[in-house]
Structure formats: C-alpha cells, structure tokens
Simulated assay, not measured.
Amino acid sequence: MKSKYQGYTFPLRDSVQREKVHFHNRYGIPLVGDLYLPRDRAGVLAAVAVAGPFGAVKEQCAGLYAEELASRGFAALAFDPSFIGESGGEVRNVASPDINTEDFSAAVDYLSTRDFIDPEKIGILGICGWGGMALNAASMDTRIKATVTSTMYDMTRVNARGYFDAADNADARYETKKALNAQRTADYKNGSYARAGGVVDPLPEDAPFFVKDYYAYYKTERGYAERSLNSNDGWNVTSALSFLTMPILRYSNEIRSAVLMIHGEKAHSCYFSRGAFAGMIKDNPYAENKELLILPGAVHTDLYDQKEIIPFDKIQQFFLTYLK
C-alpha cells in the first residue's frame, strides 16, 4: 500500500511550505523533522513542536497537525522521536519514557535557534502516547510556554496497569516482567529483536471497537505510512519494559505553563486524559491556565485526522493566548 500524497497521509496546501530539518537531542541521537511554515510570513513567528501518536511517524498525524498550524501562521515542527521513522538511535523500534520526553526538549532547542522564531514563544503538541510525553516535557522544560495534548495516552499507566487498570496488581506486573525478561534473553541469543506486530491484520470479527478504530486508520489508505510501526511490524516486544517502573507524570502538578488537554468522549482512552488532568491540577497553584476539553461523540482516532472534529480553532486561540 502506498500513501496518497508522496509518502504523507494528507495534502500540502499551497499556502504552506515544508522543509526537512535535522537536529539532535542531548544524548546525541540525531532527529529528523518536517518544518512547516506559512509561505507568506513576516517577522518572527511563534512555534509549536508536534509528535505522535505512539507508533506513528511524522508523515501521519503529527504532520497533519503541523501543516494546519502553519496555515494559521505558526512555525510547526513535526518530528520523528528517537529510534523510529527517519530519526536515529540504535536499537530501532524501541521507546523510552526518558529519551522520548527529551526529544520534545530537543525540538525546543532547535526551534529556539532559528532566527525567524521567537524563542519566548514556543509550545508543544503531543498526540496519543506522545501526549503523555508532552506533559512530562512541560513539567521539566520551563522554555515550553504552552502545551496541547490530543487523545492522550499515558504509556506508563497502560503498560504498568493494563487497559482500564485491569491488571493493576503486583502479581500481574510480575508476570509481565517475567515474560519480557525471558524475551530479552531470547533476543540476545538470537542477535535480533522480536517485534510485537503492529495493528492486527487481518482484523478478527470479534475485535473490540478500539482495535477496529486503529485498523481503520493505520491499515487503510486513510492513515497507512511505510515507516509507521503501527502500520507494519510494531515495536520491539521488550520496548515496554522501562514503562513498567518509570511513571512519567509524577510532577505534572508542578507545571506552571498553560495546558490544553483534548479528548473524545467516546474514546476508549478518555480515562487517561481525565486522570492526568485531575493529577495535574491537584494542589497546583497554577491550575487556572489548565483546561480539559471533552468532545461529545468523538472516538480515539477521530482526533488523528478528522478535521471537522479536531478543534483547530480552539488550539489556535490557545497558542495565540499563551505564546505571547
């Protein structure tokens, strides 16, 4: 299957230009992104770094969001996080709560040094699993002036507790650790890394709705991308290990900058945003610039690419308000 728009899942409008850029994080891992800019720009711009969903690449949702933001006057950088897509890092197809949080700050490093971008007007936007990474970055990096999360997953919560916290007990976590560490041994002996598989294909008739939701995006012309892990062979099986013991949102209630969290009411994942928002505003003296927006009737992947549902006017106004 080939993407419709020269490797991308969305068209590039005439008013926006796209350029490939290269930068690196503080671990020295080279990162690759697409910088979207309004063609008719004047003066310095506010900028937004965009990443996600978990297992997707910049040619998918992140690029769609960045292209839209550029059409509204922002500089927007859609980037591949470490170990996936065009970005560097060995071994491939792994995720890290530490390094992938750092990737957002690396994007801020890069944007801060461009002469047509105001370093005091930089925000970030994380989709799905990178929504959690974005919140984590906002709790660490004081240069981030505003953060948007869209259809957010807390990857540490889902790995350590299971979906809907159904496996939130020590015995269940122990069995998961046993299985993953046995796979480590097998991988080392084999000299290669077993892959978990992307979105299941063919789709079983009795698949739960959220699996069908993912299939409709990642495995069809709508959202398929050649480098996307979810569209193809998935993450390394052992990629989940560090997420079992490293919760990423421990200090989210110390975020002083503005945060807008957006989720679909009917999304299986909505509980992640509800829980993360409650934790972020609890005992936070800076809670007044935090907002949770629940979209009636929307499901998880509606916020990947359905422009009539994604509240871009709201996102634009949020960034205009706080990137000043």
Rank of each mutant, 00 (worst) to 15 (best):
E226L: 12
Y8T: 04
C61K: 03
F79R: 04
T156E: 09
A47I: 11
E120G: 15
G131Y: 02
V16R: 10
N190M: 07
E120M: 11
K2P: 04
A167V: 00
A225K: 05
N169W: 06
T101F: 11
F116S: 05
N236H: 08
S273M: 02
F277T: 04
D14R: 12
A160H: 07
G234D: 05
D115I: 07
Y36P: 07
E120F: 11
M1Q: 10
L249M: 05
G279Y: 05
V48S: 07
K145A: 14
L249K: 02
A62W: 03
A137Y: 06
S192I: 00
L180A: 08
A225E: 12
W130E: 08
G275L: 13
E90W: 12
P53G: 14
Y286M: 06
V57I: 15
A278H: 08
R39H: 09
G223H: 03
T238Q: 09
L229G: 06
K324H: 13
S105G: 12
L111K: 09
R250T: 14
L37N: 09
S269M: 12
H22V: 13
F319D: 02
L229D: 06
V21E: 11
F116P: 03
Y36F: 15
I315H: 10
G85N: 07
M152I: 11
F209Y: 10
R39L: 12
E205Q: 02
D154P: 05
D154H: 08
Y322K: 03
P247W: 06
Y163A: 13
N169Q: 03
Y218G: 01
V32D: 06
